[in-house]
Computed example of a mutant assay.
Amino acid sequence: MVRCGCALLRKYGNFIDNLRIFTKGGSGGMGYPRLGGEGGRGGDVWVVAHKNMTLKQLKNKYPQKRFVAGGGANSRVSALKGSKGKDCEVPAPVGISVTDENGEVLGELNKEKDRILVAKGGLGGKLHTNFLPLKGQKRIIHLDLKVIADVGLVGFPNAGKSSLLSRVSHATPVIASYAFTTLRPELGKIMYNDFKQISVADLPGLIEGAHMNKGMGHKFLKHLERTRQLLFVVDISGFQLSSVTPYRTAFETIILLTKELELYKEELQTKPALLAVNKMDLPDAPVKLHELMKQLQKPEDFLHLFEAKMIPEKAIEFQHIIPISTVTGEGIEELKNCIRKSLDEQDDKENDAFHNKQLLRLQHSGSAS
């Protein structure tokens, strides 16, 4: 650990993150048996990424959620080869995963104008179909939004994630002193003096049992899958959801958050992670921070305090641990620098890995020839 010196329709408020729609490729056109003419192929249905589109806008614009492509033209004397039917486009947001009814991933839309073929048009009538056209493919698909951001904020409710997002970026999330103020992902951007921009996603606070879909559960854990790094935000005074739930210290909070990520998807633990220890403006915060740092340096000495089922298989090693206060601004600039440094290091590693892969490929092709 290093401390850095520098209805299938799901809603939360007005936010929709999953949409189920019906798609159908166009039918082919009739062939012309007497002259051997071929009917046109039916149009295809594509899901296409649009920068400013949301799933809510898509639902409002197409309330029936049906997308059917045009039929192919029949063969006729004046045009023995029938023209292809008109394709149909489903406008979707960037950051969409498209799956079929069986859960098979058909593709992802990661940037504007990315497109995925979801329903093929039927063949036009020709000799081997006895000049009879084929129907287009029918397919029910799910559009599943997974926020794309450089950094995803992870923490229990009231840890100060929304306050932190408003401090480091130009986002204006709703902030209040009660649990679950954030009902949908909020995106902000950290702007640096050299014009570098880093996107940050504030996700609704998890609760114990999130991996079992308690609280917001899977609805928001999945958004972490599409962030490059994780930023844990922990209240130095600990956390208690309500008067009937157990009080958790800052250290216990980190252990439980780690366990929730592990139980949902172990790969989340492989992402680079930073830790922001918030509310350092409180009177006893320095004493509690000293204790927390001791616990994080040798976590194995304190795990006997937990039930076995609460202990993660692997502890997360934080690249940077930064004490902050979203009230006074303490540590905010240091945190922004640490985020930048961590992402730059990740970029260097990914670039090195890419170049090494390319080099191996060239060496392999050279030896093969």
Rank of each mutant, 00 (worst) to 15 (best):
Q319C: 03
L203N: 04
N60P: 01
S325H: 11
G103K: 01
V47E: 02
L360S: 09
C338T: 06
G36L: 05
L296H: 10
E267N: 11
G122K: 04
F67C: 03
A69E: 01
I140H: 10
G160A: 01
A92E: 05
K56S: 14
L343S: 14
T54I: 05
D348Y: 14
E333K: 13
K288D: 02
L145K: 13
A368L: 14
G160F: 00
A119C: 09
G215C: 00
K113W: 00
K222N: 12
V154L: 15
G107W: 03
E334F: 02
T253C: 06
S365V: 08
G26C: 09
L224E: 11
P323I: 05
G238R: 02
Y62V: 14
S78E: 15
L58G: 05
L296R: 13
L296Q: 01
A79H: 14
P93C: 13
G28H: 02
M310F: 10
D352V: 08
L187G: 04
Q319N: 11
V77Q: 12
D194R: 10
A308W: 04
N102S: 12
R139H: 05
K138I: 12
N52C: 01
V234E: 00
H223Y: 09
E104Q: 10
G72F: 07
G72L: 00
S242H: 12
G160T: 00
F318L: 00
S27K: 15
E186Q: 05
L268F: 11
P185K: 03
A285I: 11
Q57C: 04
V151L: 09
G72S: 08
V98E: 07
L9A: 09
G136S: 09
K265P: 02
I236R: 07
V47F: 07
L153Q: 10
P93S: 11
R3C: 03
